[in-house]
Amino acid sequence: MTEPKLVEHGTGVQDGHSEETLRLDVSMSTRLLNSMKILEYSGHVSARLPGRETFLVQPQNKSRAEVGPPDLLICDLDGKVVVGPSGVRPPSEVFLHCEIYRHRSDVNAIAHFHHDVTNVFTLVEDVPLRAFKNHAIRWKSGIPVHPDPAHVDDAERGRAIVKTLGDHHAMQIRAHGQIVTAETVRGVFIDSVHLVENAEAAYRACALGKPKPLTEAEIESFSHSFRRGHHIRKLWNYYTLGAIREGVFPETWAAEA
């Protein structure tokens, strides 16, 4: 069988991680989010390759349950595949990744998914998704809603997404899905989990009565004691060890990452 034709590339580093490690982190995060019914059949996780205007993202037609490090494409900020098998395409919404990386230098990882309960808050009036749980303080500045539900399938729509996102770390696309941004791949995985947990708690609260989000004072009190680096390491270990036991991905991935 003929080997896929690849384009040459260099190396990239994010927080001291090699490109190889980033490929593992993106693959593990993708499979984890899929196993948790957050990503499922559609959605994608990407990682910026620092020092280069490129990023890792999965191919359009690869199952989220099976994606592995060698499958990941390297795309430039125009959505063009610069490293990957000939003829393999990136996700149709690759442009949301392109434009966020182009305009937000603080963002090194992005997750886009379509979680129904979370998206419910874009379908009703006067019940915005706010911080209801302590870990939702990540979004104390707010979770804006993009009004256009269309797929982000060109650069113009990607720029519109950037405008709605602003300086926030998460957003919703009305009747469509969610975008979460973070400084690392592991951070974006944990934040994606917490965004969904927060939405599900809010949804259940709405069933009982008028929802009562955290106050500014409560958010401030949580912020003082929160150690983000420690929290990410703790939860990453918890979820990856559980995934290994359940066969979501091989133990060697976690050992190499």
Rank of each mutant, 00 (worst) to 15 (best):
A131G: 05
G87Y: 14
E8G: 05
V180N: 02
G68A: 15
H176M: 03
N34Y: 14
P59L: 03
R130F: 02
H146G: 04
D116P: 05
L33I: 08
V81K: 08
I161A: 04
I137C: 02
G87L: 10
S141C: 00
K212L: 11
V45F: 09
E218K: 11
Y101V: 04
L165C: 03
L241S: 14
R159H: 01
G87W: 10
Y239T: 08
I38T: 10
H112R: 08
S225D: 11
D76N: 15
V124R: 11
S63N: 09
G209H: 12
V94P: 01
S105P: 13
S105G: 00
H146M: 13
D78H: 13
V45I: 15
E218C: 02
E20D: 14
E20M: 06
A65Y: 09
I38Y: 10
A47W: 02
E99T: 12
S221L: 12
V94N: 03
V127Q: 13
G247A: 06
L72G: 04
V180Q: 04
A155N: 02
F249P: 09
I161T: 12
P85L: 01
K37W: 10
V26G: 05
S223A: 15
M36V: 05
E246F: 04
E125M: 02
H114P: 15
S18N: 13
P147T: 05
D15W: 08
A254Q: 06
S63Q: 13
D71W: 09
L165F: 01
R227L: 13
M36F: 15
S141I: 05
R130W: 01
T11H: 07
A217D: 14
P144S: 02
A111H: 07
E40Y: 01
V82G: 06
D25K: 10
E19S: 13
S46W: 02
S141M: 01
A257P: 03
E93N: 05
E251A: 15
H146W: 01
N237C: 08
V196H: 01
L214I: 03
F189K: 04
L72Y: 12
R186N: 14
S42H: 13
A243L: 05
G10E: 14
W253K: 05
A150K: 11
V124G: 02
T21Y: 01
G177V: 02
L56E: 08
I190E: 06
L72D: 10
D15N: 14
E256Q: 14
E99C: 10
F95M: 07
S141D: 15
A160N: 14
H168E: 08
I244Y: 09
Y238A: 12
L214V: 05
P144D: 01
L49D: 11
V127D: 08
I244S: 09
G242S: 10
C206D: 08
